[in-house]
Design a protein around this nucleic acid. Structure first.
Lengths: 184, 184
DNA sequence: CTATAATTAGGGCGAACGTCCTAGTATCGT
DNA sequence: ACGATACTAGGACGTTCGCCCTAATTATAG
């Protein structure tokens, strides 16, 4: 008798949406992986879009926690810690890309109503980066650049599957950050 | 009586796969958009994967043509012209992302057999960039970095939908290229 | 202990999917 | 003119999709 709370369902859906994409993950996939029936599933989430909303809300809250933790390190270390998501999630990113950028891209292609929600998660990072940059004495406009660079490294890792390349790119990003923070 | 050559079909499938994704574009979508019947369709392509193969072969050849044209400008201008794909295809990239990176990511998520083919298109660009960089007096290792940067700009444009930001990022990439080519 | 609610399982709906097939209609070499 | 080949149309297949429903089972409250 498997326990299927909405949280458990959202947690698994989060993983599957990331690994296999939203459109190509079915009710049956999630229910099957959880060991519950589709009927049970339907009791907790009426529509697939409702699951997506729950997953996005979940991701948003999780990212907020991360950002708060990192901010406690002080702005400079926080910014470096952001870059290190790429290192920490190395294997996953090489296999499935960036969860934030990937969802944005997929929802854009689907013309999905939840697209703004996905963009909001990216916006959360960008705003946080801007705030940390200001605290660290840098220009806040660099936030979007830094975010884009990280997206690029993720894409590159996913495309080439080259671990050493990914590590080199991360290193280069750290160096770049130190440069712009130290003034030139 | 619509004319449906394999080339016409591949051309339209190319566009639809880019705009809406491979998995979420159906036989019926392509046939309907072309104004032909599914039976006719099947006569030219037995399976959906066969269409994907044709689309990827088409893209590969088209990109080879582009790269050859750009190479004729001389290495330095060629590298700048590569960066300007982002400008030339601005609207499309903001709406649907990078066709190369997007396909790679989708096929990776689907664990699709054609994944290496998509990666080969990216590899074509990277190898070409490496060759042009050497000709321009730069380090060939920068090729993958430059490609990744371009991927990042495309992702950023797709996520934020900010045209001015995209233009600024492109400008920054041009400046970076001039810097690394002029030595430091 | 019992009535009410929450949870579970699983069948079934209509639609759409990729694929296959057959039957007409051009096209073309001879 | 005719037989063969290419093309086109569209129906039908089995499956899976998201979604809905009912019937059991479990938990909860009075």
């Amino acid at each position: 008798m498997p326990v299927a709370t909405p949280e458990k369902i959202a947690e698994l859906a989060d993983r599957l949406f990331y690994e296999r994409g939203f459109a190509t993950t079915s009710f049956a996939d999630i229910a099957g992986a959880l060991g519950i029936s589709r009927g049970n599933f339907y009791h907790h989430f009426k529509t697939k879009d409702a699951i997506l909303d729950a997953v996005m809300a979940r991701r948003l809250e999780q990212r907020k926690l991360w950002l708060a933790e990192w901010a406690a390190l002080g702005p400079r270390a926080a910014l470096h810690r952001f870059i290190d998501i790429l290192t920490v999630n190395e294997a996953k990113i090489m296999a499935h890309g960036c969860p934030v950028g990937g969802l944005c891209q997929e929802l854009a292609r689907l013309n999905h109503a939840a697209q703004p929600g996905a963009q909001a998660i990216a916006g959360l990072f960008i705003d946080w980066l801007a705030a940390q940059l200001v605290l660290a004495g840098g220009r806040e406009e660099l936030a979007r650049h830094l975010f884009g660079r990280a997206q690029g490294v993720a894409a590159l890792a996913n495309i080439t599957g080259d671990k050493a390349l990914m590590q080199a790119e991360v290193k280069a990003l750290h160096l770049w950050l130190d440069e712009v923070l130290n003034g030139e």
